[in-house]
Design a protein around this nucleic acid. Structure first.
Lengths: 356, 356
DNA sequence: GTGCGCTGTCGAAACGATTCGACACCGCGG
DNA sequence: CCGCGGTGTCGAATCGTTTCGACAGCGCAC
């Protein structure tokens, strides 16, 4: 293995000079720098990572804590990981893969052994056991998602509140007056998963602001449950003309259910989803959607972490603006030509309930 | 940060003794060991990874070189990564994520800087520019997939030859006499991707051995191309009663195409696929399939690498046996009740061509 | 001519572990 | 009683960098 003293000897300088050429932490004359750089190239020298970490107390590695069991949409996770790895390399850092399953012990391990300089933690829950640990660890970290108490922690995610609002705004501009949000399964709300609640809040407040009738409907997992929910909803709210769907596993089932219930999309029912582009594109009708900006989140997380490592100040919360991609599932509102489930004389909008 | 001298002082021993307790490389009396272990626990000591790497010239990290751009089926990649990470941890190692995009330079970097002790390289091509480099690098490595010249390299993958045979055997046992393999796009064969060729070879030789008529048909990418290929195939080979599909992106399109061409699956046409379970389960008809054993490949790769790191001998090639999962797409052969495309008097099997 | 500040380079001391040879101690056999 | 082999522990060297203080040389102002 070629080491720094070899380079130094060949260039006729001392090892420290080589080090300074590499790090740029002291001024080096142009001639010397050139000679050193040439020696480095000719010998193919690379600093020994361990020695460097020992001496500088910087490993130039950051940990990516990732849920590796299926759960979140996998291609999105992958995009995210790719973005993190690529951006980290652009900052001359490497990425250590840590599985969610290692839990708190895993964090402690990589942090206390000085294996990594910082942490990027994905899939943060509202009540996350790792939060207090992250505070105590003393290593810079960036969280993907927002826990209940985020003070002193740096978090980044899609702005779900704005996302809910954006969906409603789009539908409102198309003339819809009565909308519903088909959301996550009830236990997701109960578990306190932040993004579900925030989407619902944005949805509801935007609808109220625009004087629209709105309901939030949790959807149980499973095709059958999705179908039953849709049928009940269309029966109970005949004036409903547009839906926001924030439940990616059920999206496909839901779109099929609308059609089976005799509702043409988008002619009779407009649908806008919050889901990965991939899912939106492959539904029976390509769905207008706000997607999870995995790449931007990943890159943003790395940038934030790098800033913290450089002792620069960073905002506690970074909310990425939603971007709505229009596809084939939304159209201007028009009064239904034929009665749906309810008798024709009731078609004045009063059957469209407002959320409690 | 608590270091080994702290632990040593507290336990009343020398640092080297602590080190030997940790590594087990020398015998330590029971009492001493206990005292040391207690100190370690009380102080929450973890060896500094960099210092350890420097002194022992082992980083206890292995590199996972992964294609992070979509291409291979993503959930399978994920399973694989999860298996590697988990198994590595079981051997007290960590995993560094290296993107395929970094190419040869990336390999050189992590190897020459002693960042990692070994490499696991995914998605190995038949002619892979990294192969000579891997030979030269002098670091233990394990490849997922087989390059053209694999001597001196350790490789692991599903046994695609046996897979092709297994599919044919299954169909033969059901009484089918005339089969075709719908394979990858032509350029995949041209590019010399090993697994495609090997599946075809196994398929062909098993068919020959059993005296069955067989054809190998490359399928161009895209829904339309898939449909046209199916229609042509069914027209030209009316006696065809079973298919092997080794083309995962096209599988869904193909199954739909069969049905649109008036072929009930499995009543009139049996189908067995080589693809991830997830894809097979979600096709219009759940497809009997041989799946990619991602977890076993990942775990196997780590075990092989660990063995090499411990200077144990390992086989050059590890071929994982295919496992066929029966679903709803295969059924016993029976003579078609109605003519298909060809006139009835020609229904003697002679229209079923044999591969060149 | 002396002193001062600036630039560029060097030498040596960390950094925190591992590992090898040395050696003290013990029980045992001669 | 002495020496011997085996066990358990220690001390010191080593791994390859980084970084801090020192300092040589230089130009410039006083």
């Amino acid at each position: 293995m070629v080491k720094i003293t070899d380079v130094a000897r060949r260039a006729g300088v001392s090892p420290s000079t080589v080090s300074y050429v590499l790090s740029g932490k002291r001024t080096i004359s142009a001639e010397t720098r050139q000679r050193v750089e040439e020696s480095i190239r000719e010998l193919g020298y690379r600093p020994h990572a361990g020695a460097r970490a020992l001496a500088s107390s910087r490993s130039n590695v950051l940990a990516l804590v990732m849920p590796l069991r299926p759960g979140v949409h996998v291609p999105v996770q992958m995009q995210f990981a790719a973005a993190v790895a690529t951006k980290a390399r652009a900052h001359d850092h490497d990425v250590l893969l840590v599985t969610q399953e290692e839990g708190e012990e895993g964090l402690r391990r990589v942090a206390n052994s000085a294996l990594v300089d910082g942490l990027i933690v994905m899939d943060v829950q509202m009540q996350d056991a790792r939060i207090p640990l992250l505070r105590a660890l003393g290593l810079p970290s960036v969280l993907i998602g927002f826990p209940a108490r985020a003070d002193e922690l740096t978090c980044i995610d899609l702005d779900f509140t704005a996302t809910g609002e954006r969906c409603v705004d789009h539908l409102a501009e198309l003339g819809h007056r009565c909308v519903a949000l088909l959301g996550s399964p009830p236990e997701v709300y109960a578990r306190g998963t932040g993004f579900a609640q925030r989407t619902a809040a944005g949805f509801t407040s935007a609808a109220r602001r625009r004087g629209m009738a709105s309901t939030v409907v949790p959807v149980e997992p499973g095709r059958d449950a999705a179908r039953r929910t849709v049928e009940r909803l269309l029966r109970e709210q005949p004036a409903l003309s547009a839906l926001v769907v924030h439940n990616e596993p059920a999206l496909g089932a839901l779109v099929e259910a609308f059609q089976r219930a005799g509702m043409a999309v988008p002619e009779e029912l407009s649908v806008v989803a919050v889901c990965p582009d991939e899912v939106a594109e492959n539904a029976a009708v390509p769905v207008s959607s706000v997607s999870i900006p995995a790449v931007e989140v990943g890159e943003g997380a790395v940038e934030l972490l790098m800033a913290k490592l450089a002792d620069r100040d960073v905002p506690d919360a970074t909310l990425l603006p939603p971007r709505l991609t229009l596809r084939a599932s939304t159209a201007p509102h028009r009064a239904p030509a034929k009665p749906r489930y309810a008798p024709a004389h009731a078609r004045d909008g009063s059957e469209c309930l407002t959320a409690p």
